[in-house]
Computed example of a mutant assay.
Amino acid sequence: MIPTKEEMYAALEERHGKELQKKLNDASVAVCGLGGLGSNIAVALARAGVGRLHILDFDKVDISNLNRQQYFAEQLGMSKTDALYDTLKRIAPYCDIRKDCIKLNEDNIPELLADADIIVEAFDKAEQKAMLVNCVLENMPEKYLVSGSGMAGIAPSNMITTKRVTKRFYICGDGVSDVEDGMGLVSSRVLICAGHQAHAVIRIIAGEFDI
């Protein structure tokens, strides 16, 4: 039996406290890219009780995704937006989730992400990352932006950090590793970086800012 909205909110409030949970409930976060980073970030934010999530990707679930992304074998072939939407609704049935199966570009980013308080960059490819980061910084300077850079291989976990680059721009990762350099993407290390990004979002919502 699914708990009521009031019961679920009360459970989160007990964990986080009234003040923080209200801030989380009132927040709006866009997650751009729903692969190893984005799917795990979205799950963490849904579990934390973020009130509005906007998930965006144009890809479909592939068997190669199952080692590190929040998808299941029976979801193969589904759009990632549809598959993750179903999972998030099972976790947080009262979360206001908007999904867009679309490829982001410089022309559609300002309109698609206009309603988000915080934008999360979670793309796989360097050129996509740079495009989104540059577009947001240049055209939407009032937005908070949390990006990921460097989480490949099996290097030590503590190499992954969160850095505040500017007042509203954060980068999480080791800053050096690349999927082309060796082993590729391992679920545990990708999850660590995703956790850094999700936690950076939660700290921003809470009004706690890294130096």
Rank of each mutant, 00 (worst) to 15 (best):
A44M: 15
E142F: 08
Y170S: 03
R168D: 01
D178Q: 08
C193W: 13
R168F: 05
R52G: 13
V50F: 06
A27T: 07
M151I: 12
L12Y: 12
E121R: 01
Q21P: 00
Y94D: 02
R164P: 00
A92R: 09
I202Y: 12
N108D: 07
A200Y: 03
A27P: 09
M183W: 11
F209Q: 03
V120A: 01
R68F: 02
Y71T: 11
D117R: 11
A116H: 11
I192R: 09
A30Y: 04
S188M: 10
G51Q: 01
Y9A: 14
E142H: 11
M131I: 12
I202A: 00
S39W: 14
K80R: 10
I97M: 00
Y144T: 02
Y144S: 02
M183Y: 12
M78T: 04
K167Y: 06
N40S: 13
A126I: 15
E138D: 13
Q128P: 03
V176P: 00
K18H: 03
V186Q: 12
G17N: 03
L132N: 01
H16V: 05
K5M: 11
R47C: 04
I63F: 10
V201E: 09
G36W: 04
R90M: 06
Q75H: 09
V133S: 10
G36N: 07
E19A: 14
H54W: 04
L132T: 01
G148I: 10
N105C: 13
K89N: 02
R90S: 10
I109H: 06
N139Q: 15
E7Y: 12
D178F: 02
L20T: 08
L34Y: 04
G207C: 09
I205E: 06
D26G: 01
S79E: 09
G77V: 07
M1N: 08
Q75Y: 01
A11T: 11
A114H: 12
I202H: 01
I211N: 03
R68T: 00
G153P: 06
K18Y: 05
P93E: 06
A30T: 11
Q69S: 11
P141S: 08
A198T: 13
T87V: 15
T4R: 07
D100V: 04
V190S: 04
A73G: 07
E121N: 02
L66Q: 05
L137P: 01
L112A: 05
